[in-house]
C-alpha cells in the first residue's frame, strides 16, 4: 500500500452504521478517516478503542484494529495497548456518558498520565443508546427524560476545565457540523506527543432535536492554541461551551515505561538463592 496515495475510503469498513440519519457521529467517522488519510497512516498500524454507546460504535465502521470494550473503560484498554505497543497509533472514541460519567475516573487519570493517544468524545448531552436519559453534560433544567422529569438538577460537567485541571497537554473542541476544522484538530492531536483530548459537539437528532440549533451557537474562538495552563484557564472563564478550536497545546513528555531487556530471565532467580 505504501506508494499509493491513501483515501478516506480506505479507512472505512463495509458495515452500515446503526446511527440515525443526521446523527453527528457520521461526521466524526468521516473526519477520523480523512485525518488518517492526510497523515498517510497504514490502517493496520492504527487502533481505535471505544466503550459502549452510539458513538462507541465507531471502530467497527473503520478498517483499523478496533476494540469495542465495555461501558466506560475505553481509556484503560487504550492505555494498556499503547504502553505495551508504543509502535501503534492509538485513538479512543466514545460518548459523554461513557467518558464523563461511568468512565469519569479514567478520564481524569488519563489526562494526568499523559500516554500518547488521542481521545475523541462525541458529546450530545444525552445517553443516545439507552434512549434519551440525561448525561453529565445535560443542562440542569432539561426535562426531556422520564428518568429525571424535573430535570437532572445538577450543574453540567465542564469537560475542558476538567481536562485542564487534570493536566492534559492538548485540549480542543470541535463541532460535528465543521468536519474540516475537526480534521485539522485530529491531525494535530495525533501529532501531539501525549494525551490529546478533543471535545466534539455531536448532536443527537433523535433525543435532542433542538441541538440542530448548535450550528448557530458555535463560534471559532481558540484560533491560536495556548501553550501554558494559566492562559488556557483564563480563556475558559469566558467559554459558553460553544467555543471551538485548539485551546491548549503545551510541551509534553509522554508517559512511557517500557524498557529494554537487560537480563536473561534465568538470572531473576538469583535473588532468592541462599
Amino acid at each position: 500500500m505504501d506508494a499509493v496515495v491513501k483515501k478516506p475510503q480506505d479507512y472505512k469498513s463495509d458495515l452500515k452504521p446503526v446511527w440515525c440519519p443526521g446523527c453527528g457521529d457520521y461526521s466524526v467517522l468521516a473526519s477520523v478517516t480523512r485525518s488518517l488519510a492526510e497523515l498517510d497512516l497504514d490502517p493496520h498500524t492504527v487502533a481505535l478503542i471505544s466503550g459502549i454507546g452510539c458513538s462507541s460504535r465507531l471502530p467497527a465502521y473503520s478498517t483499523l484494529y478496533g476494540f469495542h470494550a465495555v461501558h466506560g473503560r475505553a481509556l484503560p484498554v487504550a492505555t494498556g495497548l499503547k504502553l505495551a505497543r508504543p509502535d501503534l497509533t492509538v485513538l479512543v472514541a466514545g460518548g459523554d456518558g461513557d467518558g464523563f460519567s461511568i468512565g469519569g475516573n479514567h478520564f481524569v487519570h488519563a489526562c494526568r498520565r499523559n500516554v500518547d493517544m488521542t481521545y475523541i468524545v462525541m458529546d450530545n448531552s444525552v445517553y443516545g443508546m439507552t434512549k434519551g436519559q440525561a448525561s453529565p453534560t445535560t443542562e440542569s433544567t432539561w426535562t426531556g427524560s422520564k428518568l429525571t422529569p424535573e430535570g437532572p438538577g445538577l450543574a453540567p460537567f465542564r469537560p475542558l476545565e476538567m481536562a485542564l485541571s487534570a493536566g492534559a497537554t492538548f485540549i480542543a473542541r470541535a463541532f460535528a457540523g465543521d468536519p474540516l476544522e475537526m480534521t485539522r484538530q485530529i491531525c494535530a492531536a495525533i501529532a501531539h506527543p501525549g494525551f490529546s483530548f478533543i471535545h466534539v459537539l455531536s448532536p443527537c437528532v433523535t433525543y435532542r432535536p433542538e441541538q440542530k440549533e448548535w450550528r448557530t451557537l458555535v463560534h471559532a474562538e481558540f484560533t491560536e492554541p495556548e501553550t501554558d495552563r494559566k492562559a488556557a484557564f483564563l480563556r475558559l472563564l469566558d467559554d459558553d461551551g460553544f467555543s471551538t478550536g485548539i485551546l491548549l497545546k503545551s510541551p509534553s513528555a509522554p508517559f512511557r515505561p517500557t524498557t529494554a531487556a537487560s537480563e536473561p530471565i534465568s538470572a531473576l532467580g538469583r535473588q532468592f538463592a541462599i
Binding site: A69, A78, G80, L88, N105, H109
Partner: peptide, 18 residues
C-alpha cells in the same frame, strides 16, 4: 492504576496488543 477497573482493562488492552 487508578482502580481495579482500570487494571483489568489495561491488561485487556495490552494483551489485545499481543
Amino acid at each position: 492504576c487508578e482502580d481495579e477497573l482500570a487494571s483489568i482493562n489495561m491488561i485487556i488492552g495490552s494483551s489485545f496488543g499481543g
